[in-house]
Nucleic acid binder design. Structure first.
Length: 838
DNA sequence: ATAGGGTTAG
């Protein structure tokens, strides 16, 4: 992208402004008074003049010099302050005063030198200098953000012992310290005990909640604050409250808060605008955010641009993110490391290593390569772009590898389909958090390794310190859906409720889909009905659930209800509704809905929708009409559409049209195995064995093989897999006896399902080894009487197995639920929900 | 003196 190139080609002028200050001191310049000293040179000069005047032991002068040096806050000035301080101690008469210690401790703490601050505090205690009420806030500040919160707790003990625990400023600092360490309960305890609170007390507590995942508590506390008359919120408070609203994605609350700010006369500063823009964008109100952005001349404001860019990235709008940063640069503002994080993320999402490299170049030229976040981001980008060598070069150079660094590597491997490498890394990495687990579990699901995903999830349970969250459960639920394991599904639902994982729409939708795929449409619908904020994809899944269960009418009702609630249907919903009509044989309704797509809803039918219509017409026996539709559709019919026609021909036994359709498919998609099988099916049913042989030969020539049929059956929470013709199951003799029993209860084999020209006995035998029959027989002998048997098959169910299942359901009084690659068969008392039509 | 938005991995 040309625009991003300008990241690369920033003029050297821009790179040297604003960060580096001119430090040149002219020897001729007069000594400035302390408060006007702005550079280390000026301070040194001041110190020299003190020495010259013999005042370098003069207590108040030295104290002031140290304080001023600390105020400047650079490493150099702090070192200088320390030198002067140490000298004054050596000179002996007076030990460093409490005030000097305070200055230095504050300086160290606020420039991140926390250890130095704490060591100096210890020295102070050791030398017998009593800390005062000013010391403790500085020391506590040094204790926050370190992993070792123990220090702060010890300091708290000291505070109590020295009787400073009732000082408001000290208490405020304690609240802040505990909140920063994530100990919100401790923070609140201190807060509640305070006899007097000022705006900082309230703000510290509110901010503590907002920064954790307790944004609701933050907002509640803000309202509590407003009802206590003596303290008024200020702009710092409001920034915290707005960020809490952003976290909650609560637009209504956010706007209420904004209105309050406007009416209360609280100063609106840049930080507040940034927070507001962030809030609007987190609530997906991009337009409002953009208006504010423009109103405050956002392009000239680094923070505003960063807020916009990071949110665009989060929304996947990478072009917009880069656009904002470019506009910002055009107005002369240099991107900082936060901007770079957004830029690099965009490259990563776009899988654009060229842009990524240009960002990397900018990072190197501007000395940003020591920021861990930047490195992690670059590693992620290179891994996602398939440049593992570049990723590892950065990785190897990092001294502070965190769990995020490792997670980026694992995710990168997953992205490139290297599940084994991902697993090896995952196993050996030094620390794992919930994201690590989610990455590997999600990766296994993506690779269709569903059982493995669930195993890993189970081993996660026994790990300390990790708790499954909504993301984990989405992966696990979708794995379970693929397996069609209802007992597992129920357990997953129970687990989510028990562990208090929030059932928001996305997770809820996954659960609806899971139950639907496990053949439990009732549970699916009851969860769907309980969901708040249902979006189009939630409705789509519910409609699909009804379609799969053969409940066409309910599917249409749901669709109408969705429209009534003002949601705009997309192409995917129509696939669901039309499929439902097709399975339910609702030809007229199907046609009406199809015709309404563009006219009423502005959704242009795509090839899948034509496929649905061909399917609908074909199943209803209207083969000619189906063919007519194909020939007159505005799009070029693809293999999927012809395959729908072919499948319909199989159902209707129309050999000629089947051959015609199959020919088309083989031109367009010669590797589509299913079409050969369907065609041979049609020929076999018609007894045209020569043609069956021809199809078989042409498959062989192309190196295609019929994928083996496999069926899963879940018995007492364990999934058993059967493959067609496989007799290796340990219970095979019992399974065989069961099959024999049913065959002799009056099952008439449907020999058209055997695609080989062998004698009748051989055909009957081959039929009896279909995977779904093996699974069914095993289910019958290994589950309790009266319980439902659930089978998941990878291919379409054969008609012989279908009638076999119907007979079994009646004789043994069992409900059999059979899911094939297309739909569900709920078989009760000899009847199937598909009305023998699939 | 004490409090502040935007921050990488799923």
């Amino acid at each position: 992208m040309a625009m991003l190139g300008s990241v690369l080609h920033l003029s050297p002028m821009m790179l040297t402004t604003s960060t580096s200050r001119p430090t040149k001191a002219t020897t001729s310049s007069p000594i400035k008074p302390l408060k006007h000293c702005k550079t280390i040179e000026e301070l040194k000069m001041f110190h020299r003049s003190l020495t010259k005047q013999g005042l370098d032991n003069e207590f108040s002068a030295i104290t002031k010099l140290v304080a001023r040096s600390c105020e400047l806050g650079t490493r150099e000035s702090l070192n200088f302050a320390r030198k002067v301080f140490d000298l004054s101690e050596e000179n002996g008469e007076s030990y460093g005063s409490c005030f000097m210690y305070n200055s230095l401790i504050r300086g160290y703490a606020s420039s991140g030198l926390r250890n130095e601050a704490l060591l100096l505090f210890l020295q102070m205690m050791f030398c017998g200098v009593s800390p005062d009420k000013y010391t403790f806030p500085f020391v506590l500040n040094a204790c926050t953000k370190t992993r070792a919160s123990r220090n702060g707790i010890q300091v708290h003990g000291l505070i109590v012992k020295m009787d400073y625990a009732k000082d408001m400023f000290v208490q405020n600092s304690l609240v802040h310290f505990y909140a920063e360490c994530g100990e919100l309960d401790c923070a609140r305890k201190v807060f509640d005990k305070m006899s007097e609170r000022n705006v900082v007390s309230w703000t510290s507590m509110i901010c503590g909640y907002a920064r954790r995942d307790l944004a609701k508590d933050a907002v509640d506390l803000f309202f509590e604050m407003r009802s206590s008359e003596d303290v008024k919120p200020n702009s710092v408070t409001m920034v915290c409250v707005i960020s809490a609203c952003a976290k909650l994605e609560d637009l209504e609350m956010g706007e209420r808060v904004y209105a309050f700010i406007c009416s209360s006369g609280i100063e609106v500063n840049d930080l507040m605008i940034s927070a507001l823009v962030d809030m609007y964008m987190k609530c997906n109100a991009n337009d409002t955010a953009k208006r504010l952005f423009d109103q405050y001349d956002g392009a000239r404001n680094l923070d505003l641009c960063n807020a916009m860019a990071s949110n665009y990235v989060r929304q996947g709008l990478t072009k917009e993110a880069i656009g904002v940063l470019n506009v910002m640069m055009d107005s002369g503002v240099r991107p900082d490391r936060i901007s770079l994080l957004s830029a690099i993320s965009s490259c990563s999402l776009e899988r654009n290593v060229l842009w990524g490299k240009s960002c990397h170049g900018y990072v190197l030229r501007n000395g940003l390569e020591n920021w861990d976040n930047i490195c992690n981001s670059l590693i992620d980008m290179y891994m996602k772009c398939g440049r593992q060598d570049s990723a590892f070069r950065i990785f190897d150079g990092m001294s502070n590898k965190t769990v995020v660094t490792w997670n980026s590597i694992v995710a990168g491997y997953i992205e490139n389909g290297e599940v084994d490498a991902a697993w090896e890394t995952f196993k050996t990495m030094p620390e794992r958090n919930i994201v690590s687990w989610n990455t590997i579990i999600g990766g296994l699901v993506q690779a269709s390794m569903f059982e493995e995903a669930i195993e890993v999830f189970q081993s996660m349970q026994s790990q300390d310190g990790v708790k499954a969250d909504g993301v984990t459960m989405m992966s696990i639920a979708s794995a379970c859906g693929y397996l069609g394991a209802l007992d597992l599904a129920k357990w997953i639902y129970y687990y989510i409720e028990k562990s208090g994982i929030q059932l928001e729409v996305r997770l809820g939708t996954t659960l609806v889909d899971m139950f639907s795929r496990c053949g439990d449409p009732e549970s699916a619908m009851s969860i769907f009905n309980s969901l708040k904020n249902r979006d189009v994809s939630a409705w789509t899944v519910a409609i699909g659930a009804m379609a799969m269960a053969g409940k066409a009418k309910q599917a249409i009702e749901l669709f109408n209800e969705m429209i009534k609630q003002g949601l705009k249907p997309d192409g995917i919903v129509f696939v669901g509704v039309l499929t439902a009509c097709s399975h339910g044989g609702l030809v007229q309704q199907g046609k009406e809905i199809f015709n309404s797509m563009e006219k009423l809803h502005g959704v242009v039918p795509e090839d899948v929708h034509y496929g649905c219509m061909v399917d609908l017409l074909g199943r209803a026996g209207l083969l000619k009409e189906a063919l007519h539709l194909i020939k007159n559709m505005p799009l070029e019919p693809n293999d999927v559409i012809w395959n729908s026609l072919l499948a319909a021909c199989r159902g209707q036994g129309n050999v000629e049209m089947a051959a015609y359709a199959a020919e088309r498919i083989q031109v367009m998609a010669p590797e589509r195995t299913g079409s050969y099988i369907l065609l041979s099916n049609v020929y076999a049913s018609a007894g045209r064995w020569n043609d069956v042989a021809k199809v078989r030969l042409s498959m062989k020539e192309k190196g295609l093989r019929k994928p083996p049929g496999t069926s899963l059956v879940e018995i007492q929470g364990r999934t058993h897999e059967f493959t067609s013709g496989d007799e290796s199951h340990p219970e095979m003799p019992k399974i065989e006896a069961m099959l024999y029993e049913i065959n002799h209860l009056g099952h008439v084999p449907d020999l058209g399902n055997v695609l080989m020209d062998v004698d009748e006995q051989e055909k009957i035998f081959m039929l009896s080894r279909h995977s779904e029959k093996l699974a069914m027989a095993f289910g019958l002998i290994s589950s309790k009487k009266g319980t439902t048997i659930r089978i998941v098959k990878n291919l379409r169910v054969c008609s012989d197995c279908h009638s076999f299942a119907k007979l079994a359901s009646k004789v043994y009084n069992r409900e059999i639920i059979l899911r094939d690659n297309n739909r569900f068969h709920f078989i009760i008392q000899g009847k199937c929900s598909c009305n023998d039509f699939w």
